[in-house]
Every structure is written in structure tokens, then in C-alpha cells.
């Protein structure tokens, strides 16, 4: 079964669109070029087989509890979580996978320090937090 890969709205979608346009125009910076290539590979692997061992896909239970649906994490580079991770869910439709987040966040790459959250401290999402 081949999955249709979608991006979460708005940030992941905007990130992918920006990277795709910059790639076409040949204006990708070094770090963006690396991220684009890693994301492209992850998209192709997820499309083919989200359980492919190279993705190291595994459920992040804290996030599943937070969002009330199973959230999976895959590595952007084999066995190297520090190289980047994506978070995704099945849906919205059958045969769809939606990539909802990427770590490190692209804006953090330009910051010297950024706020980190320990997953064990992450509570279920409050209704008031939802849009």
C-alpha cells in the first residue's frame, strides 16, 4: 500500500513549500538543503512503508496521550536522532499520513538557545489550548 503524505497546517506545510521553492530557484542555504533532502527521503520512505526499519518509527506515548491519537516518531537519518526527527500520525483519511512536526524546529537552528520541553513533563492537551 502506498501512502499519501500530507503536512500539518500551517507550519510544516509552509516549511515544505518554502524549501521546495528555494530548491527550484537554487537559493537553498546549506542547512536548509540538508533538511530538504532529509525530509524528501523521509517522505519517500513513509510513502512506501512507514514501518521500514531505517525510519526507526515508534510511537511516542506521551504525545499520543496529549493529542488523543497515536503519534509516531521517525528519524531523518538512520540511527541518528540528533540529525532530526519527524512526528506523524495516520490520517486524516485512510491511506494518509500527516507529518505534524519536525525536531529540531527550523527556527531553533538560528537561535543560540531555545526552550526545551521534557516529554515526561508534557501534559495532555487542554481543550483551551486547542484552536
Amino acid at each position: 500500500m502506498k501512502f499519501a503524505i500530507r503536512f500539518g497546517v500551517p507550519e510544516m506545510q509552509e516549511l515544505w513549500e518554502r524549501l521546495s521553492i528555494d530548491a527550484k530557484e537554487g537559493t537553498l542555504s546549506g542547512s536548509d538543503a540538508t533538511l530538504y533532502k532529509r525530509l524528501a527521503k523521509a517522505v519517500l520512505l513513509l510513502e512506501a512503508n512507514p514501518r521500514y526499519p531505517g525510519l526507526q518509527s515508534h510511537e511516542i506515548e506521551v504525545l499520543s496521550r496529549r493529542y488523543g491519537r497515536k503519534v509516531w516518531q521517525s528519524y531523518l537519518q538512520n540511527n541518528t536522532p540528533a540529525a532530526g526527527r519527524i512526528f506523524w500520525v495516520y490520517g486524516q483519511g485512510q491511506g494518509d499520513i500527516t507529518i505534524i512536526g519536525v525536531e529540531p524546529h527550523p527556527e531553533d537552528a538560528t537561535s543560540r538557545g531555545y526552550e526545551r520541553v521534557e516529554l515526561s513533563d508534557l501534559p495532555p492537551q487542554e481543550k483551551s489550548e486547542k484552536l
Binding site: 500539518g8 497546517v9 500551517p10 507550519e11 510544516m12 504525545l63 493529542y67 491519537r69 503519534v71 512526528f87 500520525v89 500527516t98 505534524i100 512536526g101 519536525v102 525536531e103 529540531p104 524546529h105 527556527e107 531553533d108 531555545y114 526552550e115 526545551r116 520541553v117 516529554l119 508534557l122 492537551q125 489550548e129 486547542k130 484552536l131
Partner: peptide
Amino acid sequence: LSARTVKMMDTAV
């Protein structure tokens, strides 16, 4: 996780 990534996922979900 980065707090920005959590916020990104909150909105996406």
C-alpha cells in the same frame, strides 16, 4: 523536544 515543535504539533493536530 523544542517548545516550538510542541506548539507546531499542537496547531497541526
